[in-house]
Amino acid sequence: MFHWLEKRPFFFAVAVFVVIAFAGLIEILPNFAQASRPIIGAKPYSTLELTGRLVYIKNNCNACHSQLIRPFKSETDRYGHYSMSGEYAYDRPFLWGSKRTGPDLMRVGNYRTTDWHENHMMNPPEVVPGSIMPQYPWLFKNVADLDTAYAEQLVIQKVFAVPYNTELPTADGSKVTVKLADTLEGARAEALEDAKVVAADMKNQDVKDAIAAGNVPEIVALIAYLNRLK
């Protein structure tokens, strides 16, 4: 049979394809049929948070940081509750990472604060002696791209029915609503308001100036994102 195939490239290719596609068929296809199911308490990203997430991706923080707490005593002691599938329902793309040169950040919002991040991102070894994380001074100067995040929000709302402007249950029984503005101007204004809250805890003069001028520096969006990782 194999000799026969080896003389017939077309059938050979078909045979190879069937053999390699088989696993995907069984492992992946069943999952295509299911939408991701959010766990109670999961909520979509606000415009500012999503902007921060794009900054995180842009700087490839995921090259050094995971966002996946495995169910081991040592990891839950260090980082908090192990990760659950439904917590990632609004993560496009997922950011689990595959290398922990730095610590996991899945729940970093629980144990680090705005001012700490501000100091740390500006100069990690000064805050954590021995740190090999690079400094990120340019994040304090670059203006964040709110528009792209807003476009992404519109798309996921439309295509994947991500529940913006909808009351969502939380773990303690209360409700939250993540707002999504109707217009680009509205979204920018909302993000700026959120940014002011974050920047109020910051000392950097460039950041204060930018916020006063109505701009959101990348660092503010990034910290908004880090703070919400819980």
Partner: peptide
């Protein structure tokens, strides 16, 4: 509860 003061904010330690 954590603590917010002159130099910064300390998060609560819940775990």
């Amino acid at each position: 509860d954590g603590k917010k003061g002159a130099i910064g904010t300390m998060p609560a330690f819940t775990n």
